[in-house]
Design a binder for these strands. Structure first.
Length: 744
DNA sequence: TGGTACCACTTTTTT
DNA sequence: AGTGGTACCA
């Protein structure tokens, strides 16, 4: 038995799989078989070490990864293993909290609020506290609160360090209080509340610690403080904690992840066994070399000697498109070529980009060229208005104190309950010290209330509906509930009211049909579990492998996946690297890791494209080739000019991205197979003398700090294009803009 | 109360 | 360019 499990593993992988008790850190380069190691390790522990499935907890980054891991473990063990806990941090925490709710400030039927729901709550809080949402945008406030939670700082412990922080320090407690009243948790609560529970409640903690003999964590470089702490606590006292990660693939700093947790792990567990997986089974040598050239520029990393047996391979193709439409057209054409002439299938191909907004132009091109594709993420399914409405109804049934859901549907479809009545109702129940549900029932039973006339009747009717639905829930029939909500609310009719075109109507109906279909598949699932599932889906989770189609997705969503052919679009300054990171070395390093992740998804071939002009907010903006392109050695690329400048030119480019676009300005809009002059290469004529030069750092009174990406003389004046850190790319007339040139 | 018209803002990435 | 929010009117 032992031999069967270990067969086909290389010595390092085998060492990891069979490592004994105690902490283990596996540093796994891309494509080095880390999922394999994790699944085999789980199977090994169960089969050969007598560990019971329920004594194991394996944490992955997405539900998709969890499902895959579960399937692979079951395949290895030849059967289903009950009690084996595999899931994301968030879903596992949600389950734990549900079970242990008695020991938390929440009831077990708590709702899970996503970002949109959070926005609603924070707006209510701001409104109530008379804080101007223009000055303190819900987004920024929430980001800060989220950061506190990820660092396990409860409202009462906040120490503000600036004025904005001071305001947040006032909002955070109120926000949290509202969440508890709504019996709702946001994503960060799921983590923080679990840690607090385990930290402060010895009985619960010890129960779980006794149960969980082994904890395994995938994508360890993307854990935040809360997640790290949780792993630490739960793995006590044995410290059988097995983590797999790669510092070079840490791309979630913006949500509190800290790849330095890998270092921290070595500090916290000095006796940890450290195993390096350096053999790559995915990519060709060319792809790997290109990727390495990119990542090597990052400081403070453990150098890895990744190698592959797949020598050579096609070079990385770089293409300069005229516009984003041309970029899409090129990609679509190449995709079709790959399928028709090179024996690839559509499903072998991924098209990646930095921002979701880029998907639109690419999608248009795919449609035009008849390329079948699936889009990952974007405006997600669960973000659609009709889907959210229906889910809000279901959530309200599950948790009748969910204010956010209540506000969403109390007058949808319209029942003549306007803003005024809603406010009156809210004030009234607060005054009564009652819940939404209690208030509704009171009105229904004719108790005196400030709600009178038509509105009172509507509230009463609503309360009655809610009651009937809750009774329906006893039968545990999700589908019945869904159909009943649709019927009783007349939602189908409402769809016609809110839609402008027949297409929109059928779109919406289709979405609801899809939701209904999903519910059918989960008929037996308890409502709360179903709702948690819908709240915690990641974009990639919706990716179906069964369709033969190219995949469009963000670089973030691509993590953990692999494709024979990878296209990465929008390799432009301001996009990749994103302008928001220009001023921040850490952010810049993360952009680089993001590009590295994209490159290393490819098995055989990589195509990198950028656009000479790109639409932004309806304006056409110049595109400057990404500095990352210059980091890939020339001999690994093709499609760039053979007259690519001397090393000196390239170095100058790398330092500054100093490229004057005038040389390419009058090219044909859409050339095919043309040779592209590489930025920084010769050929650009003597440029006119401008005061502002590309790469210069400038400061603007209103827009703040930025970097000049283009400047051209316009008659007497000078037209300067600047990528501002805060507000993005703007084109300014230098005589009006009053730009201050900053040193450095 | 609900509809329409205009305006401001958007785009980083996501559980 | 598209969307969501606000203000004003029927």
């Amino acid at each position: 038995m032992v031999t069967a499990l270990l067969e086909g593993l290389n010595p390092r992988q085998r060492e990891a799989v069979t490592a004994g008790d105690g902490p283990v850190l596996v540093l796994a380069g891309p494509g080095s078989g880390k999922t394999r190691v994790l699944t085999h390790r789980i199977a090994y522990l169960i089969q050969d070490c007598g560990v019971r499935p329920y004594e194991l907890m394996a944490v992955t980054f997405t539900n998709k990864a969890a499902t895959e891991m579960r399937l692979r473990v079951e395949a290895l063990l030849g059967g289903i293993r009950d009690g084996l806990e595999i899931g994301t941090f968030h879903s596992i925490c949600a389950r734990m909290l549900r079970r242990e709710a008695d020991f938390t400030p929440y009831r077990p039927d708590f709702a899970i609020y996503d970002t949109d729901d959070q926005h609603s709550v924070i707006k209510m809080a701001l409104n109530e506290m008379d804080i101007d949402p223009k000055r303190y945008s819900p987004g920024r406030v929430l980001h800060k609160i989220s950061a506190y939670k990820n660092e396990l700082i409860p409202p009462e412990d906040v120490r503000a360090d600036d004025y904005f922080g001071e305001i947040v320090a006032r909002i955070y407690p109120r926000y949290q209080q509202m969440m508890v009243t709504n019996n709702a948790m946001d994503f960060d609560d799921l983590l923080m509340q679990t840690v607090i529970l385990m930290r402060d409640n010895a009985e619960v903690r010890e129960r779980w610690q006794r149960r969980l003999a082994h904890i395994l964590v995938d994508e360890f470089q993307d854990t935040n403080t809360a997640q790290y702490k949780l792993v630490q606590i739960l793995s006590l006292p044995q410290n059988n904690v097995f983590v797999v990660g790669d510092e070079d693939q840490g791309i979630y700093a913006f949500r509190g992840a800290d790849y330095r947790n890998v270092l921290q792990f070595r500090r916290d567990y000095p006796n940890a066994r450290v195993i390096l997986l350096e053999q790559n089974y995915r990519s060709t040598q060319i792809v790997l070399d290109a990727a390495r050239a990119v990542i090597d520029k990052n400081q403070h990393r453990t150098p890895k000697a990744l190698f592959t047996e797949r020598e050579g391979g096609p070079r990385v193709t770089i293409y300069e498109a005229y516009s984003e439409a041309d970029e899409g057209e090129y990609v679509a054409r190449r995709v079709n070529d790959l399928v028709r002439r090179e024996n690839y299938e559509y499903r072998d191909i991924a098209i990646m980009y930095r921002t979701n907004a880029q998907s639109r132009a690419l999608e248009d091109a795919m449609v035009k060229a008849n390329v079948p594709y699936t889009l990952v993420g974007g405006v997600g399914f669960y973000k659609r208005r009709e889907v959210r409405d229906l889910l809000a109804y279901m959530r309200l049934v599950g948790n009748p104190n969910d204010t956010v859901s209540f506000d969403r549907v109390i007058n949808v479809p319209g029942r003549g309950i306007g803003k005024k009545s809603q406010e009156t109702f809210q004030e009234w129940i607060v005054q009564r010290g009652d819940t939404i549900y209690g208030g509704l029932q009171a009105i229904r039973h004719g108790e005196p209330s400030p709600i009178v006339g038509r509105a009172a009747k509507s509230f009463a009717d609503f309360g009655l509906m809610l009651d009937e639905w809750r009774a329906l829930l006893e039968g545990n029939d999700l589908l019945g509930l869904f159909d009943e909500i649709m019927a009783r609310t007349g939602y189908n009719l409402y769809i016609h009211e809110i839609s402008d075109t027949p297409e929109q109507v059928s779109d919406r109906l289709e979405n609801l049909a899809e939701l209904r279909n999903f519910i059918t598949q989960n008929r037996e699932v308890p409502l709360l579990d179903f709702l948690a599932e819908t709240a915690l889906v990641a974009d990639v989770d919706t990716l179906k492998d069964d369709k033969n189609a190219a995949t469009l997705l963000t670089l973030h969503a691509a993590k953990g996946l692999e494709f024979p052919v990878v296209f990465i679009g929008g390799l432009e300054e301001g996009l990749l690297p994103h302008s928001r990171s220009f001023d921040d070395p850490d952010g810049m390093a993360e952009e680089r890791r993001l590009f590295y992740v994209g490159l290393t998804r490819a098995k055989d071939q990589v195509y990198l494209t950028y656009a000479f002009r790109r639409m932004l907010y309806g304006d056409s903006m110049p595109g400057i080739p990404s500095r990352f392109l210059g980091d890939i050695p020339e001999e690994l690329t093709e499609g760039v000019s053979t007259t690519l400048g001397s090393m000196r030119d390239r170095q100058a480019y790398q330092r500054q991205t100093s490229w004057e676009s005038s040389g390419t300005r009058d090219r044909q809009p859409t050339g095919r197979g043309k040779i592209i002059p590489f930025p920084g290469s010769g050929g650009a004529p003597e440029k006119p003398r401008t005061k502002y030069k590309t790469g210069m750092r400038v400061y603007h009174q209103r827009f703040g700090a930025g970097i000049v990406i283009e400047s051209a003389l316009m008659g007497q004046d000078e037209e300067v294009t600047v990528a501002f850190e805060m507000v993005g790319i703007k084109r300014l007339a230098s005589s009006f803009a009053n730009l201050v040139i900053m040193k450095g």
